[in-house]
């Protein structure tokens, strides 16, 4: 359907609409069709991710970092991440860079200081993109099972999957509660300088809406707890057999080893290049 763009005042609410955020979050959590990364065993992916989440902190060589960034950016692209997440990331990046420029110029460091500081930005970018690539590729069930398999308590891994189950419902409810506040409350008549009054109002009710949400959730839990009892959950967490049956489908295949090997080779190559090219 072709959308006719009409001229109407788009309010701050529409830009920041919870509905839009909800859709983006759901897309990140549930919207993945087959991506390149989703073909691999989730435990391998978690291991792979831990390397790219931790290692950059100890690497100061820009060549290596840029190399990592290139590879991860491609992987992120293949995992079709949500636009919102990327926008948030880009926003952080732009403000971060701007801040560095201002600080370094103001304190007389010049561009060279800004260049030096950008290493940190590079590190953060690698880590952030690695997170996006991995977590938008593993489906919630596999993530939860991988955690269980890696020795996390059953309650924790169940909690991860349950979170995915509840997330959309909670966001929907939050959205409606927010509407209750908006429709029955009063937005400031004057928006104030740069709309600061509106911003304060929005900020205030966005926080207030959490209280009824928490109370509603607390009320719901009773049935959930009874149901878990009836479904034998408490019985299962004591039984190692259940864990074995549940995780029987997780198998590390040759392609997983190939993936790890290629990644290791690539990183080694980067270090070798880093020793030649000095940025």
């Amino acid at each position: 359907m072709e959308l006719v763009e009409q001229t109407h005042k788009s309010t701050l609410w529409e830009k920041l609409s919870v509905e839009r955020i909800k859709m983006e979050l759901l897309r990140t959590a549930f919207g993945h069709s087959l991506t390149f990364l989703s073909k691999f065993d989730p435990r391998i992916l978690i291991g792979w991710y831990s390397f790219f989440a931790i290692a950059p902190w100890f690497i100061h060589d820009k060549t290596v970092l840029i190399g990592m960034l290139l590879a991860i950016a491609i992987l992120t692209y293949t995992s079709k991440p949500s636009v919102l997440v990327l926008i948030v990331l880009a926003f952080g990046l732009v403000t971060d860079t701007a801040y560095m420029l201002i600080v370094s110029l103001a304190f007389g460091g010049g561009l060279s200081a800004a260049w030096a500081l950008s290493t940190l930005t590079l590190k953060l970018l690698v880590i952030a993109l690695a997170s996006i690539a991995v977590f938008s590729s593993i489906d919630p069930e596999k993530l939860s099972d991988a955690l269980l398999s890696l020795g996390m308590p059953a309650q924790f891994s169940f909690g991860v999957a349950y979170g995915y189950r509840m997330l959309p419902i909670l966001i929907e409810e939050y959205n409606n509660l927010l509407y209750s506040f908006r429709l029955r409350g009063r937005a400031p008549l004057r928006k104030g300088f740069l709309g600061y009054r509106s911003l304060i109002h929005i900020g205030k009710i966005s926080i207030l809406a959490f209280y009824p949400l928490i109370l509603n959730t607390a009320k719901r839990t009773r049935t959930t707890v009874e149901a878990l009892e009836v479904k034998g959950f408490t019985y299962a967490i004591k039984d190692p057999k259940v864990k074995r049956i549940k995780l029987a489908y997780l198998k590390i295949l040759p392609r997983d080893y190939v993936f790890i090997a290629v990644s290791a080779l690539y990183v080694a190559l980067l270090f070798w290049m880093g020793s030649i090219i000095n940025l």
Binding site: Y164, T224, A227
Partner: peptide
């Protein structure tokens, strides 16, 4: 609705 505890 509250007795459904799994994602799918």
């Amino acid at each position: 609705e509250n007795q459904l505890v799994r994602p799918t």
